[in-house]
């Protein structure tokens, strides 16, 4: 059977790299005595596949992973044994059985929602801030540099920004953003912040806090969660 887990990655969990997480998941399933399925071949590895990778330093309350087991087991039992075996950095929020692995998580997830908090160096009003974001919103394209295997290339991220809402709270601003993710393109919240900094004159500090609220699948303009498909 294949189980899909929705989990959060908070406190120290944010510093786990993708590889740390992969190793940890395998160990968690082993500690929980759940029968992992393995790939065939010379060097078999457990069939664990993640949704979109989370950058180191980012917290999240909506990450997903599919894990294949060799036997059917009641979901409650799986959840219970995983809870005991899980280190404190990761928490399971929901669990669901997936019928077949029609499409990998990576292939279907295409939207990520973030909350970004940035300290302000000066002060601005909510109205000024709204105005600034509108200005950002109206720009037709925005190029960022990406370092890839074949050197540096220019990528337009504007098309991958689906929504942008901001709030001024005391000496901080908080921005909620809905960004493209997945195999068709990926926009990073840091890039959007850079864009705001460059296009508007808002005195923003350095140490921002990024939180991923969740990953979604956008179908016909509607967002559904990976637990709903």
């Amino acid at each position: 059977m294949i189980v899909r887990l929705k989990y959060s990655k908070t406190t120290e969990g944010r510093f786990m790299s993708h590889l740390d997480l992969l190793r940890t998941m395998e160990r968690v399933f082993r500690r929980a005595k759940l029968p992992l399925a393995f790939s065939q071949g010379f060097n078999p590895h457990p069939k664990i596949s993640f949704g979109s990778a989370l950058a180191v330093g980012v917290t999240s309350e909506g990450e997903y992973v599919d894990v294949e087991l060799t036997r059917e087991l009641p979901l409650e039992q799986i959840k219970e044994s995983l809870d005991v075996a899980m280190p404190s950095a990761v928490k399971i929020l929901e669990i669901k059985k997936i019928d077949t692995r029609k499409q990998g998580l990576m292939a279907v997830i295409n939207v990520a929602r973030y909350q970004v908090e940035i300290p302000m160096l000066g002060s601005i009003s909510q109205a000024e801030f709204d105005e600034a974001l509108t200005k950002v919103w109206q720009v037709p394209t925005y190029q960022v540099e990406r370092r890839g295997k074949r050197g540096i290339r220019q990528v337009d991220i504007k098309q991958g920004i689906f929504s942008l809402v901001g709030q001024v709270i005391d000496d901080k601003i908080k921005i909620e953003m809905e960004l493209q993710t997945g195999s068709k393109g990926n926009v990073k919240p840091e890039e959007v912040v850079k864009m705001i900094k460059e296009l508007c004159e808002i005195p923003l500090g350095e140490n921002m806090r990024i939180h991923r609220e969740g990953l979604y699948i956008k179908v016909d303009g509607k967002l559904i969660t990976p637990m709903a498909i």
């Binding site: 120290e12 510093f15 786990m16 160990r27």
Partner: peptide, 10 residues
């Protein structure tokens, strides 16, 4: 490697 300094392991 921030996790060198955190603890809280299993």
């Amino acid at each position: 490697k921030p996790l060198r300094y955190v603890g809280n392991e299993y």
